[in-house]
Design a protein around this nucleic acid. Structure first.
Length: 236
DNA sequence: CGGCCGATCAGCT
DNA sequence: GCTGATCGGCCGA
């Protein structure tokens, strides 16, 4: 269990509707440094600082579940108000958490891909089923962070502006100037795992990371293509 | 109704 | 780095 004082030291004011009513690229950058907060049924609070996101732009984005206006029971939340959660199940095992943004009816969203664990770390390890997990590996991926925070389809479609079980807050530490995205070096890369969307969309730099974070799903330096290809350099 | 496959992860080579 | 796990969603017959 986490004390109220401990929570106040980490979790600032909750984001409002207006914070989410922006384009996916703006929100993907804007979420870096904020805190994803989960309150379990027991009352225990889990929280992590968002260090990696991806923007999914809308019906024109081949990599989006809403490409070409696809709208089914699975992705219905993408068409809801900005600030709605979109949680989907994939690979038969994993859940992924997104924040719907833009304007209602336009299915833009931001995938949260990695967190720096802040509160409830032992509970996160327990929920992951890895009591000895290193801090850096605890929430370093979209499926991992959902498992660590006990996020599943039961939290699909909830309103993050009002919901008591799940929301996004400013970092209170950040107000002291220690964690805002604008104070961080951030990095844009291609999105992860969407090669089948074709080179036009797979190549766009729609993944946003706090460049200095050790909690990323894929280290910046290890991204294929993020480093110039030595073999194809001309003009030596 | 059958078959393919994914906005992933962990464990092994 | 490669690959199996595991199953709901989606599309074509």
């Amino acid at each position: 269990m986490v004390s109220g004082a401990e929570e106040r030291g980490v979790i600032g004011p909750r984001l409002t509707r207006a914070d989410f009513a922006v384009g996916a690229e703006v929100l993907a950058l804007g979420l870096l440094g904020r805190v994803l907060v989960r309150r379990l049924e027991s009352g225990e609070v889990l929280a992590g600082r968002i260090v990696e996101t991806e923007a999914y732009l809308g019906v024109q984005d081949r990599a989006s579940h809403a490409y070409a206006g696809r709208r089914t029971a699975r992705n219905e939340s993408m068409y809801a108000r900005p600030g709605t959660s979109y949680v989907y199940f994939t690979y038969g095992v994993h859940h992924c958490f997104n924040v719907v943004c833009g304007s209602e009816g336009e299915p833009a969203a931001v995938l949260v891909r990695a967190l720096e664990p802040l509160l409830g770390i032992d509970m996160m390890r327990s929920l992951r089923g890895r009591p000895g997990a290193e801090l850096n590996e605890l929430c370093s991926g979209p499926g991992k962070l959902c498992r660590a925070l006990s996020i599943d389809r039961g939290l699909d479609g909830v309103d993050l502006v009002r919901e008591s079980r799940l929301w996004i807050a400013d970092s209170s530490a950040s107000r002291e100037g220690a964690g805002r995205a604008s104070d961080q070096s951030f990095v844009r890369t291609a999105r992860i795992g969407i090669d089948s969307a074709g080179p036009r969309w797979a190549g766009r730099l729609l993944r946003f990371c706090v460049g200095t974070s050790p909690h990323l799903s894929v280290p910046i330096a290890a991204r294929p293509g993020s480093v110039p290809r030595l073999t194809s350099r001309r003009r030596a």
